[in-house]
Simulated assay, not measured.
Amino acid sequence: MFYWFLKFVALGPLLKVVFRPRAEGVENVPATGPAILASNHLSYADWLFMPLVIPRMVRFVAKAEYFTSPGIKGWLQKNFFSGTGNIPIDRTSGDAASGALVSAKRVLAEGELFGIYPEGTRSHDGRLYRGKTGIARLTLETGVPVIPVAVVGTDVVAPPGKKFGRITRPTVRFGKPLDFSRYAGMENDRFILRSITDEIMYEIMRLSQQEYVDMYASRAKAESKSESKSEPKKLAS
């Protein structure tokens, strides 16, 4: 109930009036049944605008710590994240990536939409980075189609490192569902997993028109930070 209250009463109408988000290809999102929404990730605002423009709830995984912190703050945090459709990563496997996969499979088994950012983290420079193969394993193990999604303009609304930038009109584009049933039973083949992931990232790139970099975003961020730290030393010398 809290999710729908925020979407249609407390927060959604305000976001629509202020930002007037555009949506393209909404017809590609099924009215019922499970699907994986694979999106680029420019800003923390992505998880607000992507679900806002479609009538169905989109579930995401969130760190388990958001649901287990003690005290009043922890209680508020837990209720907010659970109320907005987020589910904790299942840590029973002892591995965060495997735990996220378990949680995602549970959502899809219930016939819901699951949102995922294949890059694994936000882009620090607006470019699209290499996808992680967890999404390929998820679609093969569940048989659920993948809908590529491009969110454009959210990095202007909330740029990396800032809570708020400036008002612009974000666009959310939904591509046609991708069916990978031809690879059924091959979820342990790392070459197949990479091929599927690259196909998904290509469609996201086509929709978003971002420059693609064949490197993981986490590595690119680390290299960027390292370069920025060494720059003053170069200037000093």
Rank of each mutant, 00 (worst) to 15 (best):
M1Y: 13
F2P: 05
F2L: 10
W4C: 10
L6A: 09
V9R: 15
A10V: 09
G12T: 08
V17R: 14
P21R: 10
A23E: 05
A23H: 06
G25V: 02
E27D: 15
E27T: 12
P34W: 05
A35P: 04
I36N: 11
I36M: 05
L37V: 08
N40W: 11
L42G: 15
L48S: 04
F49L: 06
P51M: 07
R59A: 01
F60M: 07
V61W: 00
K63G: 04
K63M: 06
K63C: 01
A64C: 02
Y66F: 04
T68V: 01
T68G: 08
S69G: 07
P70R: 11
G71I: 02
I72L: 15
G74R: 10
L76S: 13
L76P: 15
N79G: 10
S82P: 02
G83W: 03
D90K: 12
T92P: 06
G94H: 01
S98F: 13
G99R: 11
A104L: 08
E110L: 01
G111E: 10
E112Q: 13
Y117R: 11
E119V: 01
G120N: 11
T121L: 00
T121M: 03
S123F: 00
H124Q: 09
D125R: 12
G126Q: 14
R127I: 02
L128F: 11
L128Q: 14
R130Q: 15
R130N: 14
A136E: 10
A136F: 03
L138N: 13
T139D: 14
T139M: 08
G143I: 00
G143N: 14
P145N: 09
V146S: 05
P148L: 03
V149N: 05
A150L: 06
A150D: 02
V151T: 10
V152C: 12
D155A: 02
A158N: 12
P159S: 07
P160V: 00
P160Y: 04
K162W: 03
K163Y: 11
T171M: 06
P177I: 05
L178H: 04
F180A: 02
G185P: 15
M186R: 15
E187H: 14
E187D: 15
R190C: 00
L193S: 00
R194N: 14
E199R: 13
M201D: 14
I204T: 11
S208D: 07
Q209S: 00
E211T: 14
V213E: 08
Y216W: 01
A220Q: 04
K225D: 08
S228N: 12
S230F: 01
P232T: 01
K233P: 02
L235H: 06
A236E: 13
